[in-house]
């Protein structure tokens, strides 16, 4: 199992209702179904991924997150997941609001643009970084809203969102003590567990 999924599943209550926004081929939901017996539904727009979900028996709804989530009732899910999709959404701040309207908890993962490799790449080449976990050119990338761990922390403060847990891993999804100490510098993928501040 990918270590980031391992981290995420620790935050999921067995038999809870999980909505996975941008669920891809349904691997995560399938894993959570097998491991935690969750009642999951995924949203996806990629036809091939949707087909994979169906073949796995993962509930999937063909729907574009950017066109709104108004068809989802408030507080209708225990957890809303957003894995590696925040940076590709048109309005990340509003999406976070929606996640915490629909779910009691949110789990959000995104590539940390504050990582030293990105910084070094930009500083030394003077060009937008292209790497294994950010493989696109600036003009054809679906990732239109990059942020750093610090940026996300600041947005949570601004939105009065409570961070229950935050962890960072590298592109191999491994974490270590140094990343814990300097998450924004060393972490390549940030994983947040959030909820509403009561």
């Amino acid at each position: 199992m990918r270590p980031d999924l391992e981290i995420i599943q620790n935050w999921i209550t067995p038999k809870s209702r999980v909505l996975d926004l941008g669920c891809g081929d349904g691997s995560l939901l399938n894993y959570l179904k097998l491991k935690k017996n969750v009642n999951g539904i995924g949203l996806e727009i990629n036809a091939k991924d949707i087909q994979s979900c169906i073949a796995k028996g993962v509930n999937v709804i063909e729907q574009n997150i950017d066109e709104g989530l108004t068809n989802f009732q408030s507080n209708s899910f225990d957890t809303v997941l957003l894995a590696q999709t925040l940076q590709a959404s048109s309005k990340p701040d509003l999406l976070i609001d929606e996640i915490l309207r629909i779910g009691e908890h949110g789990i959000i993962t995104f590539p940390n643009f504050g990582n030293w490799k990105s910084r070094l790449s930009l500083a030394s080449n003077g060009r937008m970084p292209v790497s294994k976990f950010m493989p696109h050119n600036w003009y054809d990338t679906p990732n239109i809203h990059f942020c750093t761990v610090k940026d996300f922390d600041a947005l949570c403060v601004e939105k009065n969102v409570r961070i229950l847990a935050r962890t960072v891993v590298d592109s191999q999804h491994q974490g270590n003590w140094a990343m814990k100490a300097w998450p924004n510098f060393l972490g390549e993928i940030a994983i947040y567990h959030i909820t509403k501040n009561s």
Binding site: R17, N39, I41, I50, C53, I54, N59, V60, I61, E62, Q63, N71, F72, Q73, S76
Partner: peptide, 19 residues
């Protein structure tokens, strides 16, 4: 069909939807 989907979601049913 999206109306159907919306109400099935509200009813917390297992559902897949293809457009």
């Amino acid at each position: 069909s999206r109306e159907i989907v919306e109400h099935l979601l509200k009813a917390k049913k297992d559902i897949s939807y293809l457009e």
